[in-house]
């Protein structure tokens, strides 16, 4: 595969909160990565690792403290409010909680069409209806659902409505922030399969944020592991699962319980020492082609 130009390029992104105060938090601390057109990049880590903050920085729900975010080669990290409107229709977000992210007082058709209305993407009511029905079909719902309210749907169905809303403005890039965490296992699988189908049909690029390592494996082409505001490892999915190099990645993978009582009984969990996670001479570098590790030059040599 020849490397295409990245659709999103994050360069030295920093997001600090409460800057200059005693409770300053470095939620995202100097991370850089690229996302290529058509791929799914999985961003995993535990709560507080900075994965959601990264997603929100990219779609500019936060103003980054420092660094640059390029979308299709154009720096968007300093855009003003008005200029943002344009690019937000190219980048959309799917949220974690399908209960909190849909307005309970709006009908499904109005929820889905809100982006169409704001961006004047449809000329009249007929066209609006037609597009809404198209979108409902795309997420395996039907037009009968258009005139109902969110409370009439199950969690999995609501998440489909959230997906339809994100797709309405024909985005190129979607940030999905833990879209399946609130769902039952069997429903999670349905939503993951649906997202894959839509990606193929519409040629979308995903940033898939998750803490569930077994599910994220299925949808991601590449995975980046975050810890304490930094990316500690990034590689192709199979490479990362088969040859995790960073101690933290190893510990995270070892903590996933497997549905097999006999191997669970011998299950060893690798401990990670949280007291001194990083050294000054460490940074994220490519140790083997496509496999990035947060380490020092000295440490990198053993992998080369």
């Amino acid at each position: 595969m020849t490397k295409k130009d990245p659709i999103v390029s994050v360069k030295h992104l920093k997001q600090y909160f409460n800057v200059g105060k005693p409770d300053e938090v470095k939620a995202v601390d100097d991370i850089s990565f690229d996302i290529y057109p058509g791929e799914t990049l999985g961003l995993v880590g535990e709560s507080g690792s900075g994965k959601s903050t990264t997603g929100r920085d990219i779609i500019r729900l936060y103003d980054p403290t420092d660094g640059e975010i390029d979308f299709e080669g154009k720096n968007i990290s300093k855009l003003k409010r008005k200029q943002m409107k344009d690019f937000r229709s190219q980048m959309q977000m799917i949220f974690q909680d399908p209960y909190a992210s849909l307005n309970p007082r709006m009908k499904v058709e109005d929820i889905i069409a809100e982006g169409l209305d704001i961006n004047h993407l449809v000329k009249n009511a007929d066209e609006r209806d037609k597009r809404v029905h198209e979108l409902l079909h795309l997420v395996n719902l039907n037009e009968e659902h258009a005139s109902r309210y969110p409370y009439e749907f199950s969690g999995g169905q609501r998440q489909r409505i959230g997906i339809a809303r994100a797709l309405a403005v024909k985005p190129k890039f979607i940030i999905a922030d833990e879209p399946i965490s609130a769902l039952d296992v069997s429903v999670q699988a349905q939503v993951v399969n649906l997202m894959q189908d839509i990606q193929e049909k519409e040629g979308l690029t995903y940033l898939f944020i998750a803490h569930d390592l077994s599910m994220v494996k299925y949808i991601s082409d590449r995975i980046a592991v975050m810890y304490n505001g930094k990316i500690v490892e990034m590689a192709d999915t199979d490479e990362l699962y088969n040859h995790p190099l960073h101690k933290y990645t190893q510990s995270l993978l070892s903590a996933v319980p497997v549905p097999d009582p006999h191997s669970e009984k011998q299950h060893k969990i690798i401990k990670f020492d949280h007291s001194k996670p990083f050294k000054d001479d460490q940074y994220l570098q490519e140790v083997t082609p496509g496999h990035w590790l947060y380490c020092s030059d000295e440490e990198a040599k053993q992998y080369k």
């Binding site: 199950s154 999995g156 296992v185 069997s186 699988a189 349905q190 993951v192 399969n193 894959q196 390592l213 077994s214 599910m215 494996k217 299925y218 199979d238 699962y241 993978l253 996933v256 497997v258 549905p259 097999d260």
Partner: peptide, 23 residues
């Protein structure tokens, strides 16, 4: 069967998850 079959495992290498159809 359906429940066990729809559990993703780290060692499995298929691209598609199995689901229990319907609700």
């Amino acid at each position: 069967w359906g429940l066990l079959d729809s559990m993703p495992t780290l060692s499995m290498n298929s691209d598609r998850l199995n689901t229990i159809p319907g609700t």
